[in-house]
Design a protein around this nucleic acid. Structure first.
Lengths: 229, 229
DNA sequence: TATTTTAAGTGTAGTTTGTACATTTATTTT
DNA sequence: AAAATAAATGTACAAACTACACTTAAAATA
């Protein structure tokens, strides 16, 4: 056994970085901040911070997310741990990446400004520090996988949304387009959407019905993921 | 930004724990060791160790795997990072879990004995230290997901194997049974198996053809996962 | 040499799911 | 009343999945 005793082993700086996804109706977006310390101060970066000794890593990630967005109860899951020796030129830092899905229209613009945060289209990301681009890439892949089997896409939409918005979201996530009839049929056949009597009338004269995600129905169906796409 | 500067932040012990899967023809197995240090000395544990400051975490995981099995070029991927504050009563240790797939019949019994290692049927795991049972559970779930879309099941079988062995493996991974005709048809239709002229004649008078996984054909098909099951 | 035994190997029909594709409908504006 | 706009909807064909049982090759035995 290598782990002979706990003292006499290297302790390492542990960071948490958050890939924060949003959807504005057109494309998938990521929230980046201007880094406030050396090295690479002023460059674009994922929102991050160091994990404290007295907090769990999930708590650290949640704390950092709240710091930036002011929002809690955000969908977040651990992505991957990045631990190459030279990933951070400032020192040996192992970073645990999390990705979060937020309702972009509920985010607080002032709080974001305070942190020099900005939404970037995923297809037009700026140069980012360290291995952050790799993190975003992996997060996007994971999002694609996850969205295919779990009803998490709704985390990126307003509470009530039209079928076209939902389709637009899936199209953004997969960078493809779907046939409207087939998409509608499939998504409704899942039985996890509830149609409201209310219509969205901005973008059409006829108006499109709003739907909400029916969490109860989903839980009834199966707690272990259903095929969304 | 929370990450104001690199000094003045907590450094934390970083461990790596390996879930090592094997398949012996009947059930899926995990390789456990008797823990050699306090706390919980003598209890069953995943093979683990501390990450050193001068090595990447993937390297640390590979090192630990070689230590136990003497084997390298093993299929291994990162599973998840476990970082609850109290997960290890011996101190604040964040553990990065990896899972590995090994050909059980190629493992060196003597090396395993040296480390007090033993193969356990996944359905009959002993009490394990800390959150190791949770790690194994998550690893099994991940294996199920991964095996469905990636040709990694072969890592658990001898280089040449019969279709029945392969089916047995999938049945063990998913804890279910498949129809032999449908399974055979589907797996062969992928076009990634090559039939040898040689037959396995131990378990039948007719003999069953050996197959090998054809990595080249697989790479040709697509580098991004095909549907295995 | 014929028969038995064993597990391997194979085919078909029915159902479900996926895909491609165009017209009708509700409402507002002119 | 007509035109304009985007929403809502159906059908036919193809592909994939599922359920299900007999034939075959080879060795062992009579």
């Amino acid at each position: 056994m290598a782990r002979i005793d706990y003292k006499h082993h290297d302790k390492i700086l542990l960071a948490v970085d958050c890939i924060i996804f949003g959807f504005d109706g057109s494309g998938l977006k990521a929230l980046l901040v201007k880094r406030g310390l050396e090295p690479e101060m002023g460059k674009w970066s994922l929102m991050g911070g160091f994990a404290n000794k007295e907090e769990g890593i999930d708590q650290a990630a949640a704390r950092i997310l709240v710091q930036l967005t002011g929002m809690d109860k955000i969908y977040m899951e651990q992505l991957h741990c990045f631990g190459d020796v030279d990933r951070d030129p400032g020192g040996r830092v192992v970073s645990i990446a999390y990705f979060a899905l937020i309702k972009i229209e509920e985010s607080n613009g002032e709080t974001l400004d305070l942190h020099n945060a900005k939404w970037f289209d995923l297809k037009k990301l700026p140069t980012m520090i360290f291995d952050h681009k790799q993190m975003v890439r992996l997060a996007k892949e994971r999002l694609q996988q996850k969205v295919a089997n779990h009803p998490i896409g709704f985390e990126l939409l307003p509470n009530k949304f039209t079928l076209q918005q939902l389709q637009g979201l899936y199209e953004a996530v997969y960078e493809t387009s779907f046939d409207k009839r087939n998409f509608t049929r499939k998504i409704l056949s899942l039985g996890i959407l509830q149609r409201l009597d209310e219509k969205e009338k901005e973008s059409s004269k006829k108006g499109a019905f709003y739907y909400v995600f029916d969490k109860k129905k989903y839980k009834q169906l199966e707690s272990e993921g259903i095929k969304m796409i």
